[in-house]
């Protein structure tokens, strides 16, 4: 049900873009107004969400420790997995954010039995996750060439590296293949693995379809349709310099592409995709395990009723005296 609903939602979105530009002819709406609105929604939404998180207190310092603590000088501590100061916390976070270290942990020590080789599915999850997120980053950086004139030489070098294999014409970019493949894998995994199918929600399928729609329309423009890059670049530069013009050369696929991107931008703050920001604020990862060295302050540390020693002694004084235990008050 979740799959069909999400797929349908993305198809409807594509149809809206097609109908809006081809039938109704609202090219400025889809080329200018909606992208602007989406960026505004994205920026405000993300700031709102992050501020909301930031407003929640961190009453306790509760890092998950994944290695030896720093104690006695002759015991080797595990600085990355059990950081004791800010520097090592930053290192831990760096590995977590850029290399998904916790996910990678899954892959260790798999005992394989018998002649059949079984791969742990989580290893694939790490690989596909890395492939997708890194490709996405490179693709995003590559898109800068549409917004900057002249295109800086490092961007050209990057694109050349991306097309390292020199296959096809136009040359096929590795990241294009990887991003579509990894998204497909991440989707299939949710459908094929029953455990994941059980726990997946429409909110898990929808972003996958949306991203697939975006990448496929992008790939389509690059490799299959004749796309007028000059007019797209003109629009892109116009958008960032607040003087956008939608030329009549801008094609339908581009409108689909940019509409889906707009929807994605606006959707991010409402969804689990906020994990890109949340990962930096997770208290089990971004705090140092120096609990016994530096006191952590709880901003709402409550006053609680306690059972004092005086009350305790009052109740048990006679028994304590009979047992020969020292008491504070004789009566």
């Amino acid at each position: 049900m979740g799959v069909m609903f999400s797929l349908l939602a993305v198809v409807v979105l594509i149809l809206i873009a097609v109908a809006g530009t081809e039938l109704a002819g609202w090219r400025d709406l889809f080329g200018i107004v909606i992208p602007y609105a989406a960026v505004v929604a994205f920026v405000i939404g993300v700031i709102y969400r992050v501020l909301k998180w930031a407003r929640s207190a961190v009453p306790f310092r509760i890092p998950t420790t994944c290695g030896q603590q720093k104690t006695l000088p002759w015991i080797k501590s595990s600085k990355l997995d059990n950081p004791h100061n800010l520097f090592w916390v930053l290192c831990r976070m760096f590995l977590e954010v850029f290399f998904f270290r916790s996910l990678f942990r899954n892959t260790r020590s798999v005992v394989v039995e018998g002649p059949r080789i079984l791969y742990s599915p989580t290893k694939w999850l790490w690989a596909a996750g890395m492939a997708f997120h890194w490709s996405l980053l490179i693709v995003l950086i590559r898109h800068c060439k549409y917004f900057i004139e002249p295109v800086p030489s490092w961007l050209v070098t990057m694109q050349n590296l991306d097309g390292f294999f020199q296959i096809g014409l136009p040359i096929i970019l590795t990241t294009d293949v990887v991003i579509v493949a990894s998204l497909t894998f991440l989707f299939l995994r949710r459908v094929v693995d029953q455990k994941l199918r059980y726990l997946s929600l429409p909110a898990d399928y929808f972003p996958l379809f949306l991203l697939l729609g975006i990448t496929v329309s992008g790939v389509f423009m690059r490799y299959f349709t004749k796309t007028d890059l000059v007019s797209i670049k003109e629009l892109a530069i116009g958008l960032v310099s607040f003087s956008p013009v939608v030329s009549s050369e801008v094609g339908l696929v581009f409108f689909v592409h940019i509409f889906l991107v707009s929807v994605l931008l606006a959707y991010i703050p409402l969804s689990k995709l906020m994990h890109f920001a949340g990962v930096f604020m997770s208290p089990t990862r971004n705090l140092a395990n120096n609990n016994r060295v530096r006191r952590h302050i709880n901003p709402w540390n409550p006053k609680v009723k306690v059972h004092t020693y005086e009350e305790y002694e009052d109740e048990y004084r006679d028994l304590m005296k009979a047992a020969g235990l020292p008491v504070d008050k004789e009566e």
């Binding site: 989580t122 999850l125 906020m274 949340g278 997770s282 089990t284």
Partner: peptide, 14 residues
């Protein structure tokens, strides 16, 4: 903050 963030960012990766 743990609760607020954990409620919001799980991607159900499994």
């Amino acid at each position: 903050r743990t609760l607020q963030i954990f409620m919001d960012i799980c991607v159900r990766c499994g």
